[in-house]
């Protein structure tokens, strides 16, 4: 990691990224976005619905391909990657936290967290131990063998955060992480984000909620497919 200290390369580097959906009529969902997220940065992207923030999230998370521009993740040019390599890069470098949690109801909390290490080649023996550490980190060590359906919304989102963290991503990408939670639970999640930030994790939170957005170190606003500073 000594090289990382010497040359802190940005985690995300987007230059003139466009995403058009073929028509008719053609929709210019993202039109010329330049965005840099440095290591350890806590960024929020706010915008009303229809502003293109979901599309931006998909592009950031390698779930969708830009129509044009340049997107480098951890210095890797993602535009030239084939589907399989993109899947690997996605699994290794990005941790997702979704509004609706996306936990598997039929698996225990521990198995849900361990699942994110299956596709990135973490040896079986290490997975459960690392999942326990991650759950402990979000304060859920007493819930490991529970089914997700028995947990509260706030607990479920913490499981999802543990799952996102356990594979040691470069970027934690959260999509309306508090959208399904009440105020108290939302606050608890935001505190977890604060702690992660103070520990050096790079976070990008996409939201329409100003209360959530304010917690970030830097805020960008997206309007009609372009970023406003």
């Amino acid at each position: 990691m000594s090289t990382a200290v010497a040359l802190p390369a940005p985690v995300v580097e987007m230059i003139g990224v466009r995403r058009f959906f073929p028509g008719p009529p053609e929709v210019q969902a993202i039109n010329g976005v330049d965005l840099t997220i440095g290591q350890g940065e806590y960024l929020s992207i706010v915008g009303p619905s229809g502003s293109g923030k979901s599309t931006l999230l998909h592009l950031l998370g390698l779930l969708d391909n830009p129509t044009g521009g340049v997107y480098r993740l951890d210095g890797v040019d993602t535009m030239s990657l084939r589907e399989r390599r993109r899947a690997v890069l996605r699994g290794e470098r990005i941790g997702f936290v979704f509004q609706s949690f996306h936990l598997l109801d039929h698996r225990t909390v521990l198995e849900n967290v361990a699942l994110s290490m299956v596709y990135v080649g973490v040896p079986r023996r290490q997975r459960m131990a690392r999942a326990r550490v991650a759950l402990d980190r979000v304060g859920l060590s007493h819930r490991m063998e529970f089914a997700p359906t028995t947990l509260s919304g706030g607990e479920r989102q913490r499981v999802a955060i543990a799952r996102a963290l356990v594979a040691e991503p470069s970027l934690l990408l959260a999509d309306e992480p508090t959208g399904n939670l009440d105020t108290a639970n939302a606050e608890a999640i935001l505190q977890v984000f604060d702690e992660l930030h103070s520990e050096g994790m790079t976070l990008a939170v996409i939201t329409h909620d100003d209360n959530v957005s304010r917690r970030a170190q830097r805020q960008v606003r997206i309007v009609d497919g372009t970023l406003k500073w």
Binding site: M1, Q39, G40, R85, L89, R130, L165, V166, G200
Partner: peptide
């Protein structure tokens, strides 16, 4: 803030394993 050294290691595992083969 941006100059924070190295990526975090929330899971407590060896961070050398972080850059695995693609």
């Amino acid at each position: 803030m941006v100059t924070q050294a190295g990526p975090p290691d929330p899971a407590g595992g060896p961070s050398t394993s972080r850059r695995r083969r693609l």
